[in-house]
Design a protein around this nucleic acid. Structure first.
Length: 520
RNA sequence: GGCUGGGUAGCUCAGCUGGUGAGAGCGCACGACUCAUAAUCGUGAGGUCGAGGGUUCGAUCCCCUCCCCAGCUACCA
């Protein structure tokens, strides 16, 4: 069984989970579920990035020790993932003892490789960095952040020239190897638009990056002291990024999280870290690279860019309560292309819910099962389905398959699009064959059998193919059709035989609300 | 400023290396049907394919200029 080890970015433990976090995790969750149903041995890793100066500061503001603070945030995130049906296999936290030990191990591995290199080639070296430091921000400022010689955020303060002595990582030495990586393996970074940006960056050449910091201590102690004897704190690159690699050092995960990963799902804002710094680190350590990095887009809210400064205007719980978790998952996955950006609005949510879920799919299930009950006592006839319709269905399902692990892979929105085609085509088929008319004359029994089995099979396909998107709702559909066991256990690359199933019409899958909820 | 990708029906978008009448879904209007969650099915509306030039027998798709939008332009993560 082929392995599929996918990861998401670990979320920074500096605030509550919001819509942006949800989009990434739900998308990755769907990708994981689709691969499980195509026979992959899936390991799905997510987690939290819990170190760093900001976390320490926020904890201090709240008046609690940093560990206690991040424990609370982690609980909050995990509760959210449970609520959203994000079925991860492993949840990693960078404050775990196992992670911290493994980070030190990775760094030592690079030092070990350095031992055989001449001094000017070594990956890690000490260097003094001089920059303009804003006391107000407690951080160094880049030229782009400086207005009239002052920090843009604290224009009344004077920037201080501060020198810091750190461990540095010789990222610049990897420019050529990274260019070769992108040239030899174009699918290493997708979608293509993101790859272009990184290629441009590589053309400019890379600067070395700092690997340790002296100004905060909430993190992993850098395993080797500086020549002056000081021990510094491992900087974010070498603490957060390695989580994908350190996951296998947790008890019970040695095989499941075996390196390398198949896919890193990340947001487009951190593409550079995952496709330049991270591969270079792995090269330095002599480790294999992940097979692929996928940089998804962002979701805006009411046309505005989602950001902390604008405030979390949408409570995830509110979005879930309106139409249920499954509908929320469907809306996000269907309306935000995973290779681009999207926008959240209640108007749009309602449109999609009514049109796709209630009218097209929900009503198709409702009318089909009602007819199977009415005309055949609920038993799906043992007949062959309509050839022509299924030839068309097979084309749609081939497109869906391609959007999972073919040339359109990692695009759940295209899987959904293909399945809605199946549902629409089936509604059209009902209109064309008019089973209610066939039922009036017993001479048409065979023809009616064909129609009814065709409907049941079409719906079974919808259930099996959409259960990764809507786990509970599609299981309910599966059960109404009379399917045994879990729809999520069905292989997507194998036909479903529905003959003899006992269908029972239950409550509407996607009821329309009495009155449309008011829009903000 | 530089680089990249875009600007196609009210909305969201398809349109491969240029060629019969420019498409889909949603929304809208009208019609049909009754199995169904007043759902479904059919038909239609006729959009200067961002603006202006150019190449060509012929361009939404090629070239030039301009306008507008988004992203990237590295140590907050």
């Amino acid at each position: 069984m082929p392995r599929f080890f996918l990861t998401t970015a670990i979320d920074y433990a500096n605030g509550e989970p919001h819509l942006g976090h949800a989009l990434e995790k739900i998308g990755a969750d769907a990708i994981a579920r689709y691969h499980r149903q195509l026979g992959y041995d899936v390991h799905f890793l997510i987690g939290m990035d819990e170190h760093g100066q900001k976390v320490a500061q926020t904890a201090e503001k709240e008046g609690v020790p940093p560990q206690q603070f991040v424990d609370g945030i982690a609980t909050l995130f995990q509760a959210t993932w449970a609520q959203l049906g994000v079925a991860y296999d492993q949840f990693i936290r960078t404050t775990s003892a196992e992670h911290k030990a493994a980070v030190a191990r990775l760094i030592e591995q690079i030092f070990a490789a350095d031992a055989s290199l001449s001094e000017d080639k070594r990956n890690f070296y000490e260097r003094s960095y001089t920059g303009l430091y804003c006391v107000g921000c407690e951080s160094f400022k880049q030229p782009s952040d400086i207005v009239d010689g002052k920090c843009a955020v604290h224009p009344t303060r004077t920037l201080e020239e501060v020198t810091e002595h750190n461990w540095f990582f010789r990222l610049s030495a990897y420019t050529g190897r990274l260019k070769k990586l992108f040239a030899d393996n174009p699918s290493f970074l997708e979608p293509e638009s993101r790859r272009n940006e990184i290629l441009q960056l590589l053309e400019q050449g890379l600067d070395d990056i700092s690997a340790s910091r002296s100004r905060f201590d909430w993190g992993v102690p850098f395993p080797r002291p500086l020549s002056n004897g000081d021990t510094q704190t491992t900087y974010v690159w070498f603490d957060a990024l390695p989580n994908y690699w350190t996951a296998r050092f947790f008890p019970g995960y040695a095989d499941k999280a075996a390196w390398p990963a198949s896919l890193h799902v990340i947001g487009k804002d951190i593409t550079r870290f995952h496709t330049v710094i991270w591969p270079a680190m792995l090269m330095a350590a002599g480790e294999p690279l992940p097979a692929q990095v996928w940089a998804h887009g962002f979701i805006s809210l009411g046309g505005e860019r989602f950001s902390k400064s604008a405030g979390v205007k949408l409570q995830l719980s509110e979005a879930i309560d309106r139409y249920g978790v499954d509908s929320f998952r469907y809306y996000l996955l269907r309306d935000v292309p995973f290779d681009g950006d999207g926008n959240f609005s209640w108007e749009r949510f309602e449109e999609v819910y009514n049109s796709d879920l209630a009218n097209t799919l929900g009503n198709l299930a409702s009318r089909s099962i009602a007819m199977i009950e009415k005309y055949r006592g609920g038993v799906v006839p043992a007949a062959a389905p309509d050839d022509e319709l299924f030839a068309a269905h097979r084309e749609s399902l081939a497109q869906a398959r391609a959007a999972v692990d073919g040339d359109r892979r990692h695009r759940p929105h295209e899987v959904i699009g293909a399945l809605m085609e199946v549902a629409r085509r089936t509604n059209e088929y009902i209109q064309r064959t008019q089973p209610w008319a066939l039922a009036r004359d017993p001479a048409n029994a065979a023809q009616l059998d064909t129609v009814l089995v065709t409907l049941a099979m079409s719906l079974a396909s919808c259930a099996a193919w959409l259960v990764p998107v809507m786990p509970a709702k599609m299981q309910a559909l599966w059960e109404q059709l009379g399917g045994a066991g879990d729809a999520s256990k069905m292989r997507l690359d194998q036909p479903i035989n529905v003959s003899g199933w006992k269908a029972t019409k239950g409550a509407p899958l996607f009821p329309k609300p009495e009155a449309p909820p008011a829009s903000p």
